[in-house]
Structure formats: structure tokens, C-alpha cells
Design a protein around this nucleic acid. Sequence first.
RNA 1: GCCUUGGUAGUGUAGUGGCCUAUCAUGAAGCCCUGUCGAGGCUUCGACCCGGGUUCAAAUCCCGGCCAGGGCGCCA
Length: 568
Amino acid sequence: MKYTQRTHTCNELRKQHVKQTVCLAGWVQGKREHGSVVFLDLRDRYGITQLAIDKSKFDSNIKKEYVIIAKGVVVERSQPNKKVDTGDVEVKVEALEVVNESEVLPINNETTEDPNLRLKYRYLDLRRTSSMSKLVLRHQVKKAAAEFFDKNNFLDLETPMLVKSTPEGARDYLVPSRVNKGKFYALPQSPQLYKQILMISGADRYYQIARCLRDEDLRADRQPEHTQLDFEMSFVTSKDIMDFTEDLFKHIFKKVLNKDLDDFPRFTYEEAMTRFGSDKPDLRFGLELSEVTSIAKKTDFSIFNSAESVKCIVVEELFSRKQIDEFTDVVKLYGAKGLAYATYTSEFEGGISKFLGNVSDELKKELKLKKNSTIFFVAGCKKVAETSLGQLRIKLRDTLELVKSDDFKFCFVKDFPLFSYNETEKRWEPEHHMFSMPKPEFVDDFEKRPGEVKGDLFDVALNGWELASGSIRVSNPKVQRRIMEFIGLSPKEADEKFGFLLNAYNYGAPSHGGMGLGLDRIVALMAETFDIREVITFPKNKNAECPMDDSPSKIDLKQLDELGLKLK
RNA sequence: GCCUUGGUAGUGUAGUGGCCUAUCAUGAAGCCCUGUCGAGGCUUCGACCCGGGUUCAAAUCCCGGCCAGGGCGCCA
């Protein structure tokens, strides 16, 4: 190894190095003392090499996690250790220097589960090969992505971290300006506006591995700062972007995990909701939703008669009362009034079976029922029936252990509704963001039928996770102004908040579109973990605090004073 | 803001009203051992989140708080 005091890392020495004099450095992973010989396992991020030291020469103060530099001769072991890559050899130590001592570690890397303790000592947590390897994986994904972008003419262009606050959507992190007292920057929620403007500049193809910040509540898959593989392309259709994205993911998975991905199915939003009850379907298993509204109308079950929609899931499995109660809790959480069920052995039994008498043949045929199945019904409005059964589908996946975490099934979901109605604020708002283009057939009159409007926008889903969103952008400033006005921005507000963007579009914009891919989620799934904190170097806890450096923290009054700010 | 689960040596745990001056493992300290590698053997050390209540008796039940996890809302 070059540029270092050592001659080799702790994962390099093999039989061919026997008799060489080497110098290794690292942490003492373990110590085994015998009558006249001491063994140390020396660890660095690459691996472990055993050191053998004559007891008479050994400084018995050396303990676990001490950092040492050892010089010696490589010798072959009489009894090799097959569990370690360097197990054929060991280093017979001639000189040993302690670089630094270590106290007993406050966390045990094999067993500690307390997340806050792990975060407080994140730097020790990362000494574990299994922790560090997730960051190595992240590095490889970024590198593979950068390669693919570069190969396809994308420019890596940096956009500012101090930007204008545009309080649509997520809450901004704000940064007070000292020079301009009383004014604030925001930290970017994404490079969205900048990359669009770069298309107007003629950058043609842009990408950035960009940090994005949002001051919203956290989840296992949500951090206040996350990283996106962000890109934008000129003169493209949705299909071009999806084709590119699919090839990008295939390249990354081949390069990093040596896996060949299947082609990505492309569902419309409508189809995804109808079949899977989710706009981010997990395609690793079946249990698709079935539509039984018209059959249900014929029963005497009043709940079925009065509902807009009745949908169901059929499972070839019988469940206990307790399990069904759990399933009921799931659908209720997503707005269903209850979960109707019936089991089918050779006839319908249990649950609501007594109401199914007059439709039993029709139902058996429609659902292609096999013996010993359970049918779960949700009746309600279409959206509730679909989403609650979609969530039940995920619950069944986990209960019945239907999937493997190293199986990767991607898909695109496209043609999302462009607007959704906000009941609390009594106004239409963009489902995604206000810069996405309506599909061509809606451009002329979207104001008149907002509920029907489909956008030229699409998501990438992987195994039930939303990984990325993209769209064709509005490149015509007149259309952009109409959209802004429709969602409740007066022309004056539009100019105050987005005038710089609208103005830029007055000078000849290419048609363009792009995506933002959630790097943390991608790496987490590739690492087969469900907690994105494991793939973030220094993550925050649930309260958006960092237990290691204790941020956020109070600041000196002097600092506030300089900024012209006062705390309430 | 709301719902929910949990908090016992440094770490991971057992204990659900009296058998608890609290189990086991790991760890740490010391000693023994020519070849271990998840070393082994012996000895020692170390804990019921905080406050209040019920009770003859509380790790255990109740109330309040703190801390942590998961979720809902929120996240264009």
C-alpha cells in the first residue's frame, strides 16, 4: 500500500508474503494470552491479521481497541484459520508501538441495540465491518451512478445550498442573513428550480448527488437531510426518462451487486391502485386486489349494498381470530370502517358467509376460489377500499413471510393525478409539485376538470418503497402561470415567489424533464435494511437531533445579536 | 399535535406482588495456561429510568414525568 507508514493493510497478507518483513497498523480486536506467546487480532477496515508476540516482549498493558503499529516477519501458520482471509499466515512481531490507548468501549458492537447509544457513539458503531460495509456500498452506488451519468453526457453541476425560501410543500430549514438583517435563506428541499433553469441555459443534461433538506417529522425511512441522485434532461419524453432511469438502475445493480434486473413494468397510477392498492406496489408477491362491487350489490349485506366500492383480497390460508383482529386494525388505520371476511373450505363459512348465499357460485367463479382460502373485503369509497386493502396486502406479506429482501422488483407508476383537493384548506393543490406538465389532452382546460387531470409524472417503486419521482416540466411560462393561479397563487404572489423562474422561461426553454432518486433508500434496500440511518454516515435520531454532537444546540446571545434576531 | 410499544449491571437478557441482599451470557479487573483464533480454567466487580401512590410487602400494580422505537397527521 502506498502513501502510508504501513506496508500492507490487514487484509493483504497471504502465503506468498511468507518471510517478508512487513509493517501493519490498526486496532486490537482481541487478545489471547498463553504461557509464552500472545496473539493479537489486528483490525483495520479491510480485514484482520493475526499477530504473534513472544510473551517476554509483550507489553501487557495493551488492551482491546488500542491502536498499534507492528513490524515483523510473515510466517505460515501450522494450523490455518479458514474463517479469515489472512488465516494462512501470521506476523511474528519484532517491534510494536502503541499509537494511542483506548478506554473500554461504551457499546458492544455485537449486541448493542439502543439506537440512541449507537448514534452517540456512531464512530464506534462504524468500526464494525457490517456497519462500515453499508457505507462502502453507498460509495459504490454513487460511483456507479456517476459513471453512468458521465457516459451519457450528463454534467455534474453544483447548485446553491443557500436558496430562496418557497414555503409551498415541506417546511424549509431557514438560515438568517447577517448582512441583510431580517432576511433569510432557506436550505434547499431539492435543486428543482435550479436544474430547470440550467436546461434553459442549454446544459442539456445535468446531474448532481444533492443533499436535500426538509424540516418535517421523521420516520424510519425519512431523515431531515437526505441525498438524491438528481438529474434533468432536455428534449425528452416521459418514456425517454423512464428508459434512462431503468438503464441507470440496471447499471448500478450489475456493477455493485452483480445482479441482472428484470425489465421494469410500467403501470398507470390507476392500474397500480386497482391491482395493488398502492402507488408503490411490491411486486415480489401476488395477492392482488379483486373488484367485487357488482356482486356485492346483490347480497343482503347492507354495508355492501350502500358502498361505492367493494374490493377484496383472497389468500389461500386460514387465520386465527386474533390474526383477523390484527388485520382489522390495519384497514381501520387507513380509513376502512371494518374488515369483512369469509373463509372458503368447501362452502363459505364464518364472518359474513351467511350473506353470501345467493352469490356464492358467482363469487367462487369470479375469484377462482380454491379450498381453504380466506377472503377479506373492504367496502367504502374507492380510495379507502383500495388503500386499506393495499396496506392489508403488505401486512399479509409480512405475516406470511412471502418475500425475500435480496429479491429486487422495480416498477414505474405513471400518469398520476396532477391535482388533489385539500379538504381542510378547501383548495386544489399539486399532488407532486407545481412544475409538472399535465398530459397533453388536459393542457387546454385543466382548470375545468381538475379532478380528472393526469400529469406527465411518474415514480419508481422498488419492493413497496417509493424510490424516485420525476416528470416532464412545464416549459411554457403561460401554462406555468395558469397552474400557479389555479392552485391559489395570485399573479402578484407568483411573481414575488417564482418570478425569477417564470422570467427565465421567457427566453426560450427546451422541453425537459427529470427525476430525483432517493439515494438513501436505494442503498438501504440494496443493503437489505429498512432503516436509512444505517446507510447515512452521521444520521439524526427521531427528534432530528444528533446524539453525538448534541445538535441542535443553544447559541450565544452574541450570535443572535449579530443576526438581528431575538428569541421569544 | 395524536396513537402505540418499550425502559433491569458497560452491553444483551430472566424475573408479572413475598421464593430478589435480582438470573444468565457477554464485558471489565486479577491470576493460571506453548498455538489460540467466538480460546480455555479459577476468583472478583457491576443494574431494577425518575417522582408520587396502593399494599404488611413493589423490578412487578396505579398516576405523572423523562427517554427511546414504530406509526398517523405532516412529508409539493
